[in-house]
């Protein structure tokens, strides 16, 4: 099972809840970049590891995360 996420970085408010929810701990907030509102946004580390479990997207309050999964 392979998956990946696409983050709507302009909608993201950097609340960090997806980072906490990710069971594999492969999401972090951007370290040096911010979006137009000034928030650091979620980004995926280690793209090959994501299983597409949707945990991050379910807890995301602003619905910024789309999840894709393939077998």
């Amino acid at each position: 099972m392979r998956g990946t996420i696409v983050v709507d970085t302009e909608r993201c408010k950097g609340c960090n809840l997806c980072v906490v929810a990710c069971p594999l701990k492969i999401i972090r907030l951007s370290q040096r970049q911010v979006n137009r509102k000034g928030y650091p946004f979620a980004e995926q580390l280690a793209p090959g590891m994501c299983t597409g479990c949707t945990s991050c997207a379910i807890v995301c309050p602003d619905g910024c995360i789309s999840v894709y999964r393939t077998r």
Binding site: G3, D8, R11, K13, G14, C15, N16, L17, Y39, G52, T54, A57, I58, P61, D62, G63, C64, I65, S66, V67, Y68, R69, T70
Partner: peptide
Amino acid sequence: NLVYRKPRLLNDTPMHYCPGCGHS
């Protein structure tokens, strides 16, 4: 392959809630 996205009925207006708010 899309398994989850922002609900269709939630429109594109950015929500004014604070980051991490339960309302959203």
